[in-house]
Computed example of a mutant assay.
Amino acid sequence: MVATVRTVLGDVPAAELGVCDAHDHLFLRSPLLPGQELDDTGRAAEQLVAFRALGGRAVVQWTPYGMGREPEALAALARSTGVHVVAATGLHQAAHYPPELPGRLRDRLAGLFVSELTEGIGSTGVRAGLIKVAGAFHGIDAHSRLTMTAAAEAHHRTGAPIAVHLELGTAALDVLDLLCGELEVGPQRVVLGHLGRSPETAVQREAARAGAFLAFDGPSRAHHATDWRLPEQLTALTDAGFGGQLLLGGDTTVPETPGMPHLLNRLRPRLEQALGKEALDTILVGNPARAFAWRVSSPSEG
Protein backbone atom coordinates (compact mmCIF):
# COMPACT_ATOMS: atom_id res chain seq x y z
CA MET A 1 0.00 0.00 0.00
CA VAL A 2 1.39 3.43 -1.00
CA ALA A 3 1.46 5.84 1.93
CA THR A 4 -0.35 9.08 1.15
CA VAL A 5 -0.65 12.49 2.74
CA ARG A 6 -4.05 14.18 2.59
CA THR A 7 -3.59 17.75 1.36
CA VAL A 8 -6.21 20.41 0.73
CA LEU A 9 -6.07 19.52 -2.97
CA GLY A 10 -6.34 15.78 -2.42
CA ASP A 11 -4.14 12.85 -1.50
CA VAL A 12 -0.53 12.82 -2.70
CA PRO A 13 2.07 10.06 -2.36
CA ALA A 14 3.99 10.74 0.82
CA ALA A 15 7.25 10.41 -1.08
CA GLU A 16 6.31 13.51 -3.10
CA LEU A 17 5.87 15.81 -0.10
CA GLY A 18 9.36 17.29 -0.33
CA VAL A 19 10.92 19.80 2.09
CA CYS A 20 8.25 20.28 4.73
CA ASP A 21 7.43 22.86 7.37
CA ALA A 22 5.85 20.35 9.74
CA HIS A 23 3.94 22.83 11.93
CA ASP A 24 2.77 26.24 10.87
CA HIS A 25 -0.25 28.51 10.49
CA LEU A 26 -1.32 30.49 7.45
CA PHE A 27 -4.60 31.49 9.10
CA LEU A 28 -5.34 31.66 12.83
CA ARG A 29 -7.82 33.44 15.05
CA SER A 30 -8.15 33.21 18.84
CA PRO A 31 -9.67 35.33 21.63
CA LEU A 32 -6.31 34.92 23.37
CA LEU A 33 -4.64 36.92 20.58
CA PRO A 34 -6.96 39.90 20.03
CA GLY A 35 -5.88 42.12 17.15
CA GLN A 36 -3.18 39.64 16.10
CA GLU A 37 -5.22 37.49 13.74
CA LEU A 38 -3.62 35.75 10.79
CA ASP A 39 -6.33 36.50 8.24
CA ASP A 40 -4.52 38.19 5.34
CA THR A 41 -4.63 36.02 2.22
CA GLY A 42 -2.08 38.23 0.48
CA ARG A 43 0.41 37.83 3.29
CA ALA A 44 -0.17 34.07 3.37
CA ALA A 45 0.57 33.94 -0.36
CA GLU A 46 3.78 35.91 0.13
CA GLN A 47 4.89 33.49 2.83
CA LEU A 48 4.26 30.47 0.63
CA VAL A 49 5.96 32.00 -2.40
CA ALA A 50 9.03 32.90 -0.32
CA PHE A 51 9.06 29.44 1.26
CA ARG A 52 8.90 27.77 -2.14
CA ALA A 53 11.69 29.98 -3.51
CA LEU A 54 13.92 28.62 -0.74
CA GLY A 55 13.10 25.02 -1.67
CA GLY A 56 10.06 24.46 0.54
CA ARG A 57 7.43 22.19 -0.93
CA ALA A 58 4.91 21.44 1.84
CA VAL A 59 3.35 23.15 4.88
CA VAL A 60 1.33 21.36 7.55
CA GLN A 61 -1.11 23.84 9.03
CA TRP A 62 -2.14 22.93 12.57
CA THR A 63 -5.04 25.41 12.87
CA PRO A 64 -7.99 23.29 14.09
CA TYR A 65 -11.76 23.67 14.17
CA GLY A 66 -13.16 27.07 15.07
CA MET A 67 -9.93 29.06 14.79
CA GLY A 68 -10.21 30.62 11.34
CA ARG A 69 -8.78 27.88 9.12
CA GLU A 70 -10.12 29.33 5.82
CA PRO A 71 -10.14 25.98 3.96
CA GLU A 72 -11.12 27.41 0.57
CA ALA A 73 -8.35 30.00 0.80
CA LEU A 74 -5.89 27.24 1.71
CA ALA A 75 -6.87 25.29 -1.38
CA ALA A 76 -6.58 28.37 -3.60
CA LEU A 77 -3.16 29.19 -2.19
CA ALA A 78 -1.91 25.63 -2.64
CA ARG A 79 -3.11 25.72 -6.23
CA SER A 80 -1.58 29.10 -7.06
CA THR A 81 1.80 28.58 -5.32
CA GLY A 82 2.40 24.91 -5.99
CA VAL A 83 3.05 24.23 -2.29
CA HIS A 84 1.36 21.21 -0.73
CA VAL A 85 -0.80 22.37 2.20
CA VAL A 86 -2.24 20.06 4.84
CA ALA A 87 -5.18 21.32 6.92
CA ALA A 88 -6.21 20.19 10.39
CA THR A 89 -9.34 19.17 12.17
CA GLY A 90 -9.38 18.78 15.95
CA LEU A 91 -9.82 21.15 18.87
CA HIS A 92 -7.31 23.32 20.72
CA GLN A 93 -7.41 24.19 24.43
CA ALA A 94 -10.76 25.40 25.72
CA ALA A 95 -9.42 28.94 26.24
CA HIS A 96 -9.32 29.44 22.48
CA TYR A 97 -13.11 29.11 22.13
CA PRO A 98 -16.32 30.67 23.41
CA PRO A 99 -17.09 29.04 26.78
CA GLU A 100 -20.13 27.15 25.50
CA LEU A 101 -18.53 25.62 22.40
CA PRO A 102 -16.62 22.60 23.81
CA GLY A 103 -19.69 21.48 25.75
CA ARG A 104 -21.93 21.89 22.73
CA LEU A 105 -19.62 19.67 20.67
CA ARG A 106 -18.88 17.13 23.40
CA ASP A 107 -21.04 14.27 22.16
CA ARG A 108 -20.15 14.63 18.50
CA LEU A 109 -16.47 15.50 18.49
CA ALA A 110 -15.22 12.23 17.02
CA GLY A 111 -17.87 12.32 14.31
CA LEU A 112 -16.97 15.92 13.49
CA PHE A 113 -13.30 15.04 13.16
CA VAL A 114 -14.05 12.04 10.95
CA SER A 115 -16.35 14.11 8.75
CA GLU A 116 -13.72 16.81 8.24
CA LEU A 117 -11.09 14.19 7.45
CA THR A 118 -13.16 12.19 4.99
CA GLU A 119 -15.82 14.50 3.55
CA GLY A 120 -14.58 18.04 4.01
CA ILE A 121 -14.53 21.07 6.29
CA GLY A 122 -18.05 22.45 6.34
CA SER A 123 -19.48 22.43 2.83
CA THR A 124 -16.16 23.24 1.14
CA GLY A 125 -15.12 19.71 0.18
CA VAL A 126 -11.60 20.58 1.39
CA ARG A 127 -10.52 17.70 3.61
CA ALA A 128 -8.32 17.88 6.68
CA GLY A 129 -5.21 15.72 6.78
CA LEU A 130 -4.50 15.48 10.51
CA ILE A 131 -6.16 15.82 13.92
CA LYS A 132 -4.78 18.56 16.20
CA VAL A 133 -5.41 18.51 19.96
CA ALA A 134 -3.67 20.02 22.97
CA GLY A 135 -2.42 19.12 26.40
CA ALA A 136 -2.55 21.33 29.49
CA PHE A 137 0.41 22.83 31.33
CA HIS A 138 2.27 19.92 32.90
CA GLY A 139 -0.70 17.59 32.64
CA ILE A 140 -3.98 16.44 31.11
CA ASP A 141 -7.08 18.38 32.09
CA ALA A 142 -10.70 17.41 31.45
CA HIS A 143 -10.78 19.24 28.12
CA SER A 144 -7.58 17.53 26.96
CA ARG A 145 -9.01 14.13 27.85
CA LEU A 146 -12.22 14.91 25.98
CA THR A 147 -10.48 16.04 22.80
CA MET A 148 -7.82 13.34 22.84
CA THR A 149 -10.41 10.62 23.34
CA ALA A 150 -12.32 11.93 20.32
CA ALA A 151 -9.08 12.24 18.33
CA ALA A 152 -8.15 8.64 19.12
CA GLU A 153 -11.57 7.42 17.97
CA ALA A 154 -11.27 9.42 14.75
CA HIS A 155 -7.76 8.08 14.22
CA HIS A 156 -8.89 4.48 14.66
CA ARG A 157 -11.70 5.07 12.14
CA THR A 158 -9.56 6.82 9.51
CA GLY A 159 -5.85 6.23 10.08
CA ALA A 160 -5.17 9.98 10.26
CA PRO A 161 -2.19 11.16 12.34
CA ILE A 162 -2.66 13.07 15.58
CA ALA A 163 -0.66 16.24 16.29
CA VAL A 164 -0.48 17.51 19.86
CA HIS A 165 0.20 21.02 21.12
CA LEU A 166 2.22 20.63 24.31
CA GLU A 167 1.67 23.72 26.45
CA LEU A 168 5.13 25.31 26.78
CA GLY A 169 6.54 21.92 25.80
CA THR A 170 5.28 20.13 28.92
CA ALA A 171 3.30 16.93 29.62
CA ALA A 172 4.70 14.93 26.71
CA LEU A 173 4.75 11.71 28.72
CA ASP A 174 1.26 12.29 30.14
CA VAL A 175 -0.02 12.72 26.58
CA LEU A 176 1.64 9.51 25.45
CA ASP A 177 0.28 7.62 28.46
CA LEU A 178 -3.24 8.67 27.49
CA LEU A 179 -3.10 8.45 23.71
CA CYS A 180 -0.81 5.46 23.27
CA GLY A 181 -1.58 3.63 26.50
CA GLU A 182 -5.20 4.01 27.46
CA LEU A 183 -6.51 4.97 23.99
CA GLU A 184 -4.30 2.53 22.04
CA VAL A 185 -3.02 4.90 19.35
CA GLY A 186 0.25 3.71 17.84
CA PRO A 187 3.00 6.08 19.02
CA GLN A 188 4.31 6.42 15.46
CA ARG A 189 0.96 8.06 14.62
CA VAL A 190 1.51 10.84 17.19
CA VAL A 191 3.40 14.08 16.61
CA LEU A 192 4.36 15.95 19.79
CA GLY A 193 4.70 19.69 19.18
CA HIS A 194 6.77 22.34 20.97
CA LEU A 195 9.22 20.00 22.65
CA GLY A 196 11.94 22.63 22.28
CA ARG A 197 10.08 24.98 24.61
CA SER A 198 10.86 22.74 27.56
CA PRO A 199 14.36 21.52 26.74
CA GLU A 200 14.40 18.67 29.24
CA THR A 201 16.55 16.13 27.44
CA ALA A 202 15.46 13.17 29.58
CA VAL A 203 11.81 13.73 28.66
CA GLN A 204 12.64 14.24 24.99
CA ARG A 205 14.52 10.94 24.88
CA GLU A 206 11.80 9.06 26.73
CA ALA A 207 9.18 10.37 24.29
CA ALA A 208 11.42 9.35 21.41
CA ARG A 209 11.97 5.88 22.89
CA ALA A 210 8.20 5.50 23.07
CA GLY A 211 8.11 5.88 19.27
CA ALA A 212 6.45 9.28 18.77
CA PHE A 213 7.57 11.95 16.33
CA LEU A 214 9.06 15.00 18.04
CA ALA A 215 8.38 18.42 16.51
CA PHE A 216 10.70 21.33 17.24
CA ASP A 217 8.64 24.27 16.12
CA GLY A 218 9.36 27.30 18.17
CA PRO A 219 10.60 30.38 16.30
CA SER A 220 7.30 32.12 16.98
CA ARG A 221 8.28 33.37 20.46
CA ALA A 222 11.65 34.98 21.26
CA HIS A 223 11.33 34.25 25.00
CA HIS A 224 11.01 30.51 24.52
CA ALA A 225 14.03 28.21 24.58
CA THR A 226 13.90 27.66 20.85
CA ASP A 227 16.35 28.66 18.13
CA TRP A 228 19.49 29.06 20.21
CA ARG A 229 19.17 25.59 21.76
CA LEU A 230 17.91 23.85 18.65
CA PRO A 231 21.25 22.61 17.20
CA GLU A 232 22.36 21.02 20.45
CA GLN A 233 18.97 19.40 21.10
CA LEU A 234 18.67 17.92 17.62
CA THR A 235 22.30 16.79 17.65
CA ALA A 236 21.85 15.00 20.97
CA LEU A 237 18.71 13.22 19.77
CA THR A 238 20.28 12.28 16.45
CA ASP A 239 23.39 10.94 18.16
CA ALA A 240 21.13 8.89 20.43
CA GLY A 241 19.56 7.23 17.39
CA PHE A 242 16.33 9.21 17.12
CA GLY A 243 17.07 11.20 13.97
CA GLY A 244 14.26 9.41 12.14
CA GLN A 245 11.64 10.87 14.48
CA LEU A 246 12.47 14.59 14.39
CA LEU A 247 10.45 17.31 12.66
CA LEU A 248 10.89 21.07 12.16
CA GLY A 249 8.28 23.78 11.89
CA GLY A 250 7.91 27.53 12.05
CA ASP A 251 4.65 27.82 14.06
CA THR A 252 3.70 31.30 12.87
CA THR A 253 1.01 32.36 15.33
CA VAL A 254 0.89 36.17 15.07
CA PRO A 255 1.79 38.53 12.20
CA GLU A 256 5.15 39.73 13.59
CA THR A 257 6.66 36.25 13.90
CA PRO A 258 9.49 35.29 11.49
CA GLY A 259 7.30 33.15 9.24
CA MET A 260 7.95 30.10 7.13
CA PRO A 261 10.99 31.44 5.22
CA HIS A 262 12.88 31.75 8.54
CA LEU A 263 12.92 27.98 8.83
CA LEU A 264 14.90 27.59 5.62
CA ASN A 265 16.92 30.77 5.21
CA ARG A 266 18.06 31.15 8.84
CA LEU A 267 17.67 27.87 10.73
CA ARG A 268 18.55 25.42 7.96
CA PRO A 269 22.18 26.62 7.47
CA ARG A 270 22.88 26.43 11.20
CA LEU A 271 21.33 23.00 11.51
CA GLU A 272 23.11 21.66 8.43
CA GLN A 273 26.40 22.75 9.97
CA ALA A 274 25.53 21.00 13.25
CA LEU A 275 23.92 17.84 11.89
CA GLY A 276 25.20 17.41 8.34
CA LYS A 277 23.14 17.61 5.16
CA GLU A 278 21.99 13.99 5.14
CA ALA A 279 20.61 14.10 8.67
CA LEU A 280 18.88 17.44 8.05
CA ASP A 281 17.34 16.16 4.80
CA THR A 282 15.88 13.28 6.81
CA ILE A 283 14.31 15.76 9.23
CA LEU A 284 12.93 18.07 6.55
CA VAL A 285 11.91 15.51 3.92
CA GLY A 286 11.91 11.88 5.00
CA ASN A 287 10.41 12.21 8.46
CA PRO A 288 7.40 14.39 7.53
CA ALA A 289 6.55 11.99 4.72
CA ARG A 290 6.10 9.27 7.35
CA ALA A 291 4.73 11.35 10.20
CA PHE A 292 1.82 12.76 8.18
CA ALA A 293 1.09 9.73 6.01
CA TRP A 294 -2.23 8.13 6.78
CA ARG A 295 -1.05 4.56 7.22
CA VAL A 296 2.51 3.55 8.00
CA SER A 297 3.71 0.93 10.44
CA SER A 298 6.87 2.26 12.06
CA PRO A 299 8.79 5.53 12.45
CA SER A 300 11.96 3.67 11.41
CA GLU A 301 10.57 2.52 8.09
CA GLY A 302 10.48 4.43 4.80
Rank of each mutant, 00 (worst) to 15 (best):
S220G: 12
V114M: 00
T253N: 03
G10N: 10
Q188R: 14
A163P: 09
H23C: 05
L271F: 06
R69A: 07
H223K: 04
T118D: 11
L48H: 08
H262T: 10
L284T: 04
R189W: 10
A142K: 11
D24M: 11
S80T: 15
I121C: 01
P299Q: 00
D227P: 12
M67V: 01
G243I: 04
A110M: 11
L237M: 12
H165M: 06
M1H: 12
Q93L: 14
G243C: 05
M260P: 00
E301H: 07
D40W: 13
E206F: 04
H25S: 10
R157Y: 04
E100F: 06
V296W: 12
D21G: 01
V203D: 02
G286F: 05
A3Y: 00
A208H: 08
P34K: 00
L267Y: 05
I131G: 00
H96Y: 12
H25Q: 07
L230E: 15
G243K: 03
L105P: 15
H143F: 01
A163R: 04
A44Y: 03
A22C: 04
A240I: 10
L26R: 01
R157G: 02
D24S: 15
A95L: 10
R57H: 10
L237A: 06
R57S: 14
D107A: 13
R221Y: 14
R6C: 04
S300N: 14
T7S: 12
E16C: 01
G243Y: 01
R268S: 06
A45L: 11
A151M: 06
Q204W: 04
V114Q: 04
N265C: 02
V59L: 15
A150L: 07
A279V: 12
R29Y: 13
Q47M: 03
L109W: 02
V12D: 07
G135M: 07
H262G: 08
T149I: 07
H84P: 02
H92Q: 08
E100D: 11
G243V: 02
L38P: 00
G249M: 09
V191G: 04
A150D: 09
M148Q: 04
A134E: 13
F213R: 01
R290A: 12
D40G: 03
A53N: 08
H143S: 00
P255N: 09
G66E: 12
G241M: 09
A142Y: 00
H155F: 10
R52V: 01
G181H: 14
A78H: 11
L17V: 01
G82V: 12
S115M: 03
L176Q: 10
V2Q: 10
Q188H: 15
R266D: 14
P269L: 12
S297T: 14
L247V: 00
V8T: 06
T235D: 01
E46W: 05
E278P: 00
V185P: 07
R6I: 02
L17G: 01
V203F: 01
L246T: 09
R189N: 09
G129K: 00
G286M: 03
E256G: 08
E200Q: 08
A58D: 13
A293C: 09
V191L: 11
D174R: 11
A53Y: 07
F113N: 06
D174Y: 05
F292V: 05
S220T: 13
V296H: 13
A15M: 04
P71G: 02
R209D: 09
S123G: 03
